[in-house]
């Protein structure tokens, strides 16, 4: 192990406290459910034979692997320390995702400008705790710059007002 590696390591390892066995179990369960869903879906598509595979054979094989490994993970992986606990700040992520969805819903209806402006503003002012002034200035500048770049320069057919 060389010296530079030694000093880099701590920066990387700086992660919040591990979430424990339940979170590991949840992760394994979700993966297993996905595998089972894949099993059912591909079974319905038809497996065919090995020499004459149907559309479902390949996804079926993968689903079997996912399911089995997820069960193994549930059994032996519970002690792993690589997951993180959710906390109050995780709610910010929910808010952030809501703003993204609203942008996607609104864009085809009212163009990208207003939703983009609001999204940047909310992220700057409420999620980023920037000052009112800089939030307004930066969001306006960003949207204008995007308009110039995507619409004027690159002529991309984004839904838009102007």
């Amino acid at each position: 192990m060389d010296a530079s590696y030694e000093e880099e390591r701590p920066v990387e390892e700086e992660r919040p406290p591990p979430a424990g066995a339940w979170s590991q179990l949840t992760a394994a369960l979700v993966a297993a459910l996905l595998g089972v869903a894949g099993l059912i879906g591909s079974w319905r598509l038809g497996l065919g034979r090995l020499t004459e595979p149907g559309p479902g054979l390949w996804p079926f094989v993968i689903s079997v692997v996912i399911t089995l490994l997820s069960v193994v993970l549930a059994i032996i992986g519970r002690q792993a320390l690589d997951s993180e606990r959710f906390n109050r700040a995780s709610l910010l992520v929910v808010v952030a995702v809501v703003t993204l969805v609203l942008l996607a819903v609104a864009m085809p209806l009212i163009g990208f400008e207003i939703p983009s402006l609001l999204l940047t503003f909310v992220w700057l002012r409420f999620l980023g705790k920037e000052s009112w002034r800089s939030s307004i200035v930066i969001s306006v500048v960003t949207v204008v710059a995007f308009h110039l770049l995507f619409v004027t320069a690159l002529q991309i057919p984004l839904p838009r007002l102007v």
Partner: peptide, 26 residues
């Protein structure tokens, strides 16, 4: 913080309703 966020979401919806129509891609 959550109140502010809610106000802002309200604004977004209002803008949505006000801005309907007149959208173009090209």
């Amino acid at each position: 913080k959550s109140v502010r966020v809610r106000v802002c979401l309200g604004l977004t919806v209002a803008a949505l309703l006000a801005g309907c129509g007149g959208v173009k891609t090209t």
